[in-house]
Design a protein around this nucleic acid. Structure first.
Length: 299
DNA sequence: ATAGGGTTACTG
DNA sequence: CAGTAACCCTAT
């Protein structure tokens, strides 16, 4: 790690990460112009942001320079549940077609089957209290994922199975997540909720969406927990989500500050960035279990 | 405006 | 002298 020309400060890096988190990787101009980051990133051009992000990405993906694409393999989620090594290696926010076999279970994004989590996710994010019919679900997933020709048929089959498993219920022609399953998921999520106490009254005072009770944030939490509970739900983590999570995880490890993590989780949660929260939840959950009582956060 | 290849400059 | 990070150039 050299220290050449106009070296990026940690503030600038942080601003960049948050910018990517907020606007997505690729919207460099947008990030640069965002009043939230422009003070810090004023001396950086959109191209600088792009280049920096590229550097960060490749260094995070494991030592490689950018022209040497390293093929990294992600361990199968189902087999071992070792807490710490969940996502120590991760692909850059670029292409990196991660085509890991992942055992014999459901996982492949293209030619495989439909993961349960995909449907749960879809149902959840559509947030229709009356449930969503097959068409809606089908359309929703098709817009978010590449699907195969007989996708719809597979979907209906899967829906039937989930219904039988009492994870979802069918009302008229609409499907929705069952209360029991949602509740179970919420309970799982409570493992994370103590962090809300650690989160300082930061911006928290504004976005009063604590994990507490009947708030949209709880919805997000429940959605997150569902994925956690679903175990092998780390399907398509190929991109900057995991990238960001990994960064934060290391950060919190290094500084031994759960506060940073908690604050981020909270902010994202309040912002409704469910998908990102999911990833954070998984990692922080394990982090908590590892460091148990040792992690005394000094606010 | 962005992605990606290429170049320069700094570090160990 | 190799590796890396910042910077530059160009096609899309």
């Amino acid at each position: 790690m050299g220290a050449p020309k106009q070296k990026w400060t940690s503030e600038e890096e942080e601003a960049l990460r948050r910018g990517v988190l907020k606007h997505g990787a690729g919207k460099w101009r947008t990030i640069q112009k965002d009043p939230e980051f422009s003070p810090v990133l004023s001396s950086r051009s959109n191209i600088d942001l792009k280049d920096k992000w590229r550097n960060l990405s490749f260094s995070a993906s494991g030592l490689g320079s950018r022209d040497k694409i390293k093929v990294l393999r992600i361990k199968a989620p189902s087999s071992s549940t070792s807490p710490s090594s969940q996502a120590l290696l991760l692909p850059p926010p670029d292409k990196v077609t991660e085509a890991s076999p992942l055992a014999d279970s459901e996982k492949s994004s293209q030619d495989g089957k439909i993961p349960n989590s995909m449907i749960i996710e879809a149902l959840y994010e559509m947030r229709d209290p009356n449930g969503s019919d097959v068409d809606a679900i089908c359309n929703y997933i098709e817009q978010r994922h590449e699907v195969q020709a007989n996708f719809r048929r597979l979907l209906t089959t899967k829906l039937r199975r989930l219904t039988a498993a009492k994870k979802i219920e069918k009302i008229d022609r609409a499907y929705r997540i069952t209360e029991s399953y949602a509740a179970k998921a919420s309970i799982a999520m409570k493992s994370l909720s103590p962090k809300k106490d650690l989160a300082k009254p930061l911006k928290a005072s504004q976005n009063v969406g604590l994990f507490a009770a009947t708030s949209p944030a709880l919805d997000a939490a429940a959605a997150a927990a569902m994925k956690v509970a679903d175990a092998e739900a780390k399907a398509h983590l190929a991109n900057e989500h995991m990238m960001e999570v990994e960064r934060m995880f290391k950060l919190s490890e290094e500084t031994e500050s759960l506060l940073t993590l908690a604050t981020e989780i909270y902010e994202r949660c309040s912002r409704g960035e469910v998908l990102t929260v999911l990833q954070v939840a998984q990692n922080s959950f394990e982090f908590e279990r590892n460091s148990s009582a040792s992690s005394t956060v000094h606010a």
